[in-house]
Simulated assay, not measured.
Amino acid sequence: MITADLCIIPMGIEESSVGKYVAKAAQIIEKSGLNYQITAMGTQIETEDLKKLYEVCGEVQESIFEMGVPRVYTVLKIDDRRDIENRTLDEKVKSVKNRM
C-alpha cells in the first residue's frame, strides 16, 4: 500500500484562509475514488497505484491554478512500503498507538 501526504500551498493570494482550496482538492481526490483523510496540515492519501497518485496530485495542483492563484507550492511525501500488505493509514496509526 502506498500512503502519501499532499500539501498544496496557494501563494500570492490576499486572504490567509485556504479552506476553499483544500475543499477543491478534496473534491478532486474524492472523485478519483482514492481513500483519503484531511488533516490540519495536509491531506493523506492511500493507493495501490503510484501513477494514479501522481495523476490525482497533478489534477489538484492544476485546479488551484484554475482558481486564479498565480503560484502554487506543492509538497508530496510518499511512503511506498512493499514488505507488509494492507499497510493503510489507519493501520499505521494503530501500530503507533499500540506502542504507547
Rank of each mutant, 00 (worst) to 15 (best):
61 Q>C: 11
26 A>M: 10
92 K>W: 03
95 S>R: 13
57 C>W: 01
80 D>E: 11
57 C>A: 15
5 D>H: 09
38 I>S: 04
98 N>S: 12
44 Q>P: 01
16 S>E: 14
68 G>T: 06
31 K>V: 09
40 A>I: 12
3 T>I: 14
53 L>D: 00
42 G>M: 05
35 N>R: 15
10 P>A: 00
62 E>Q: 13
65 F>H: 14
49 D>F: 06
8 I>H: 00
32 S>K: 04
35 N>Q: 12
49 D>P: 05
13 I>A: 04
63 S>Q: 04
5 D>N: 12
60 V>G: 00
98 N>G: 14
22 V>G: 04
98 N>T: 12
36 Y>G: 05
12 G>K: 10
19 G>D: 13
46 E>C: 05
36 Y>N: 06
100 M>Q: 10
67 M>L: 14
43 T>L: 03
83 D>W: 01
54 Y>S: 07
75 V>I: 14
7 C>T: 13
96 V>S: 04
72 V>K: 02
58 G>Y: 08
71 R>L: 10
48 E>F: 06
77 K>Q: 12
13 I>L: 04
82 R>T: 12
52 K>L: 12
33 G>A: 03
29 I>Q: 00
29 I>V: 15
48 E>D: 13
72 V>D: 01
42 G>Q: 11
13 I>S: 02
93 V>I: 15
39 T>P: 02
73 Y>E: 11
60 V>H: 00
86 N>T: 08
88 T>L: 02
75 V>Q: 09
70 P>F: 00
64 I>G: 02
46 E>N: 06
7 C>R: 08
64 I>M: 01
1 M>K: 06
24 K>C: 09
79 D>E: 15
29 I>K: 01
89 L>N: 04
35 N>H: 14
40 A>S: 15
85 E>R: 12
59 E>Y: 09
94 K>M: 08
46 E>A: 03
7 C>F: 02
8 I>Y: 01
61 Q>W: 06
33 G>C: 05
43 T>M: 02
1 M>N: 03
79 D>R: 11
71 R>C: 06
73 Y>S: 13
96 V>H: 07
18 V>H: 02
33 G>M: 07
58 G>E: 09
21 Y>F: 15
24 K>F: 07
69 V>R: 03
3 T>R: 03
15 E>D: 11
32 S>H: 04
83 D>E: 08
96 V>C: 02
6 L>M: 08
58 G>L: 08
50 L>K: 13
92 K>R: 09
10 P>G: 04
72 V>R: 00
83 D>Q: 08
50 L>M: 14
77 K>V: 10
71 R>P: 06
35 N>V: 14
82 R>C: 04
34 L>Q: 01
15 E>Y: 13
10 P>R: 02
40 A>Y: 13
47 T>F: 00
96 V>R: 07
56 V>F: 03
13 I>G: 01
22 V>C: 03
82 R>Q: 08
27 Q>I: 07
92 K>C: 05
34 L>V: 09
4 A>V: 08
62 E>T: 13
51 K>S: 14
63 S>E: 08
32 S>D: 03
25 A>V: 15
20 K>S: 10
82 R>G: 03
9 I>Y: 09
69 V>Q: 03
32 S>E: 04
33 G>V: 07
86 N>D: 13
50 L>R: 14
2 I>K: 00
97 K>Q: 14
88 T>D: 04
78 I>M: 06
41 M>H: 09
75 V>A: 06
100 M>R: 14
39 T>L: 01
